[in-house]
């Protein structure tokens, strides 16, 4: 048996975060294996977003361990450093840079030297150009590449944001409600894209939409009041008595 601390893609143990006495996360522990696709569900206020904040360095936990690939202590690093380690995050509300064009958005997100000198003087090489084109095609925004991102539809912004994740080549992707506000067709296409992406990456999806969660067919973790309530296949979780109680009320 190997030590999950050193082998897991992401290892959270005993993470506690409190805001003015309210415990947003309460000794949360979670292990994500390399290459795994995991969905996380939970009622509002269960701590899903705070968990992502901790993983990406936005929020410092009061206590607990957060390790990435057994080497990087996420509780000590800031957001840019964590992003450059290979952890990408898509927000619940699509946040693209509205005053930049689609391709400029992607160019900024491209995996590359992030130092100022480089951003001032270096241009894209052919390989990077090719990658950009590929992703543009992948997220279906090829024809709108020179338009301002602010002019895209809601769904297209979501896709652009996913595209920005892809050009950054993260090893772990965190998706916060990726299908919120999408049409059924868009939702299905997104589920398809995520399953494809999951082949060579680790992905954690936070979602409310149970149909979507089911269509991903992945292991499900249920959060409640800042800690893990249940874990398992979607069917096992849906029949779990505590989960039913929490979701349906007493």
């Amino acid at each position: 048996m190997t030590d999950p601390l050193s082998t897991a893609q992401l290892y959270l143990d005993g993470i506690t975060v409190s805001f003015d006495g309210f415990k947003a996360l309460n000794a949360l522990s979670l292990v994500i294996e390399p290459g795994e696709l995991r969905t996380i569900i939970g009622p509002n206020g269960a701590g899903k977003t705070t968990m992502m904040d901790v993983i990406t360095g936005k929020t410092r936990p009061d206590s607990g361990t957060a390790m990435f690939e057994g080497r990087h202590d996420l509780t000590r690093l800031d957001e840019p450093t964590i992003a450059n380690l290979g952890i990408g995050r898509k927000f619940q509300k699509p946040t693209v840079f509205e005053n930049l064009t689609v391709e400029e958005n992607l160019e900024l997100a491209l995996k590359d030297d992030r130092r100022i000198r480089h951003t001032l003087f270096r241009r894209l090489d052919e390989e990077q150009e090719a990658k950009l084109e590929r992703v543009l095609a992948q997220v279906g925004l090829m024809r709108r590449r020179t338009e301002l991102a602010g002019l895209l539809s809601h769904g297209q912004k979501q896709w652009l944001e996913i595209g920005m994740l892809l050009v950054h080549d993260p090893r772990l992707i965190l998706l916060d409600e990726p299908v919120a506000g999408m049409t059924d067709a868009e939702t299905a296409a997104t589920a398809d894209l995520i399953t494809r992406l999951a082949r060579d990456r680790t992905i954690v999806v936070v979602e409310h939409d149970m149909v979507f969660v089911r269509s991903l067919g992945a292991k499900v973790t249920v959060l409640h009041e800042g800690s893990v309530l249940a874990e398992g296949s979607i069917d096992a979780v849906q029949n779990h008595p505590r989960v039913i109680e929490v979701y349906l009320g007493r």
Binding site: T56, K58, D78, E79, P80, A83, N84, G88, R89, F91, T95, V96, F97, E98, N99, L108, A109, R114, M164, H168
Partner: peptide, 14 residues
């Protein structure tokens, strides 16, 4: 200017 925290999450030191 438009979304500072987002810039950090794609790996730039703001």
């Amino acid at each position: 200017r438009d979304a500072e925290s987002r810039v950090r999450f794609i790996g730039y030191s703001t």
